[in-house]
Amino acid sequence: MTAAIIDTATLAKVVVYSLLAGVGISVLFAVGVSSAASVADALRDRRTAAGAAWVVVFVLSAVVVLGIVVLGIVVMSTK
């Protein structure tokens, strides 16, 4: 009776999508912040190659975070 009223499959999707998007964005953004700090450290210590590598990580994390946001809006607006 209760299972018939409550659409558990859809609610489970809400839980999974929320966890993936919410935790994913925070973790990826933290990667970006961490790599930005590493870029600053590397430049201060004159480690150019390491700095360049961290710049790549920073740019990648920023692109992925923005990509997730854009993807979310596109999925939402798909009627």
Binding site: S18, L19, G22, V23, S26, V27, F29, A30, V31, G32, V33, S34, A36, A37, A40
Partner: peptide, 26 residues
């Protein structure tokens, strides 16, 4: 739960970073 798990993960990753830069980033 999502916010709790997120912040635990973020602190685990950034615990040793300088707070000034981390705060500016966030």
């Amino acid at each position: 739960v999502v916010a709790g798990v997120s912040i635990v993960a973020v602190y685990a990753m950034l615990g040793r970073r300088r707070p000034g830069l981390v705060n500016r980033g966030f």
